[in-house]
């Protein structure tokens, strides 16, 4: 049974593309056949996050318009042989594709892949409608901020209106130091407000920036975000994985520096 999952958020810049790249790569590392589709026409980015930007020949719009076959537009990942990327077009706009065309293309892809992951553009306009048209499951990405949560709530409403029955939440860029201080909503607060199942959270980790710089998804690496994304990936497949512990190193070093400070004071 193959699954079509749309990764969406409403608000831009909360980590849709990073989540798509890492969950897709994670699923491939578990041996699944995965195709990642960048549906952000005009503002493509999944290719650079995956480090595959130099291999693009054809794109999603070419497939839809019949300029090439689906297979010609698929870029094989350099790390996992069962992972493919369909890049978006950079010089076109969202109206180049309609929901019917997306459904048709994804129906063809569904037959050959275990997971079709759609990286949705920000907003609730045509790009969003195209991305959700063929999906049967959604991952809503948010950060513990008022604006991102408000938009996520709107997106959840729209997904429910489009008869999605599986909508899961990923809370990104969580900072435990701020939560402890009371200056950030906790994961429970966010889940409580949005009232959809939690697929996982990702700590705010500089390794995400480093990984994006290098075009290497960090899922599975020995970093907090890498572990978090691997846990999320496993939960996507239906495995039960307990929520990870918050980064301890931060508190450990904080303690060490506190000890030093105290010594200096003495």
């Amino acid at each position: 049974m193959s699954e079509v999952i749309v990764v969406t958020s409403g608000k831009g810049g909360v980590g849709k593309t990073t989540t798509s790249a890492n969950v897709g790569t994670g699923l491939a590392s578990l041996g699944k056949k995965v195709v990642l589709i960048d549906t952000d026409i005009g503002l493509r980015n999944l290719d650079v996050v995956m480090g595959l930007e130099n291999r693009i020949v054809y794109n999603l719009v070419d497939v839809v318009e019949g300029n090439c076959r689906i297979k010609q537009a698929l870029i094989k990942d350099k790390r996992y042989p069962s992972l493919y990327l369909m890049p978006s077009a950079q010089t076109r706009d969202k109206s180049s594709v309609n929901p019917g065309q997306m459904k048709k293309m994804i129906a063809a892809l569904k037959e050959q892949y275990d997971y079709v992951i759609l990286d949705c553009p920000a907003g609730i306009e045509q790009g969003f409608q195209n991305a959700i048209a063929a999906a049967d499951r959604a991952i809503v990405v948010t950060t513990p901020e008022v604006s991102a949560i408000r938009d996520a709530d709107r997106i959840i409403g729209l997904l429910e209106a489009n008869d999605f029955n599986k909508i899961d939440l990923v809370v990104n860029r969580v900072r435990n130091d701020l939560i402890k201080r009371g200056d950030m909503m906790s994961i429970n607060d966010v889940v409580d407000i949005l009232s959809i199942p939690l697929l996982g959270f990702v700590p705010d980790d500089e390794n995400v920036v480093i990984a994006t710089n290098q075009g290497e998804p960090l899922v599975g690496s020995n970093t907090y975000a890498g572990i978090a994304y691997m846990n999320i990936t496993k939960r996507v497949t239906g495995l039960e994985v307990p929520l990870m512990e918050f980064p301890k190193t931060v508190t450990f070093w904080t303690r060490v520096s506190e000890i030093f400070k105290k010594k200096q004071e003495v």
């Binding site: 901020e145 949560i149 408000r150 709530d153 709107r154 409403g157 009371g182 200056d183 950030m184 407000i193």
Partner: peptide, 19 residues
Amino acid sequence: KKSGEVAKDRLKILLISDR
């Protein structure tokens, strides 16, 4: 109130009218 709590309270009211 801590700002996290303020955020939560504001959101709760905001989302009621949004929804």
